[in-house]
């Protein structure tokens, strides 16, 4: 029954799929996960701070981002970022940002909302006595946060953070709406060009599955290794 299919097309397009497509996908995933984690941690600290105004701003941001469909946010930023760039730099025309930068900004801002909830839970899981002990030694808020609270929160939450990053890895394929050549975009282009839709999409699915599955197994393994003994 497979005689009608041409699986050789996969082999021929491998360099393009991985060199162009997968590199983009992995770069976007890694950088926006990192950016989202940093921004999300700041948001979490804002929400847990004693200043109500900071908490309100962070809560508003998180609720807004979590209430919008990701595709909409991707579109929105793609068209908006050039104008924001224009305002910031004072240029005469909207600034050319490019697909990668635009996607990176979008995913960073979007993921920050999710990472902030993860980090908030992580920070709240640290016993209050740990913070007291830090203060009792004369450390200030910044030092207690960066040397005692965040390292423990990060380690406690590492499995959840990585799981979120795996979801992000799959979600990056949504950049297809901007006609950007990520892994799925590359597969799609080859599929359309050669009329090999079934083969290419089947292969893309297999690659996404293998990477995501292997990564989540790795996370489970890490979970047992990084747990802090109490």
């Amino acid at each position: 029954m497979f005689t009608a299919f041409d699986f050789d097309v996969i082999l021929r397009s491998l360099p393009y799929l991985f060199w162009d497509g997968m590199t983009f996908t992995l770069m976007l995933t890694a950088l926006s996960a990192l950016g989202g984690l940093v921004l999300g941690t700041l948001l979490a600290l804002m929400r847990l701070s004693n200043l109500p105004i900071l908490g309100a701003v962070a809560t508003g941001y998180v609720n807004l981002m979590r209430s919008l469909p990701l595709v909409l946010v991707i579109f929105w930023f793609y068209f908006l970022v050039p104008y924001i760039g224009q305002i910031i730099t004072g240029a005469e025309r909207p600034v050319l940002v490019g697909g990668f930068a635009s996607a990176l900004i979008t995913f960073t801002l979007f993921e920050a909302a999710y990472f902030s909830e993860i980090m908030r839970a992580g920070i709240q899981s640290i016993p209050k006595g740990q913070v007291s002990a830090g203060y009792a030694l004369g450390l200030n808020y910044r030092q207690v946060t960066s040397y005692i609270v965040l390292p423990q929160a990060l380690r406690n939450m590492l499995p959840v953070i990585l799981t979120q990053a795996i979801v992000l890895f799959q979600d990056t394929s949504l950049v297809y709406v901007l006609s950007i050549t990520d892994f799925l975009g590359a597969a799609s282009k080859v599929a359309q060009r050669d009329g090999r839709l079934i083969e290419m999409y089947l292969f893309a699915a297999l690659v996404y599955f293998l990477i995501s599955f292997a990564a989540s197994r790795l996370v489970r393994h890490l979970q047992t290794k990084t747990a802090i003994i109490r």
Binding site: Q130, G134, Y135, A136, G138, P151, Q152, I228
Partner: peptide
């Protein structure tokens, strides 16, 4: 306060060593 606390040692019921 941090400077003053640094001069007063405190020992807690649950030790509160930093486990990491």
């Amino acid at each position: 306060l941090p400077k003053l606390r640094a001069r007063i040692g405190m020992v807690f019921q649950h030790f509160e060593l930093f486990p990491h």
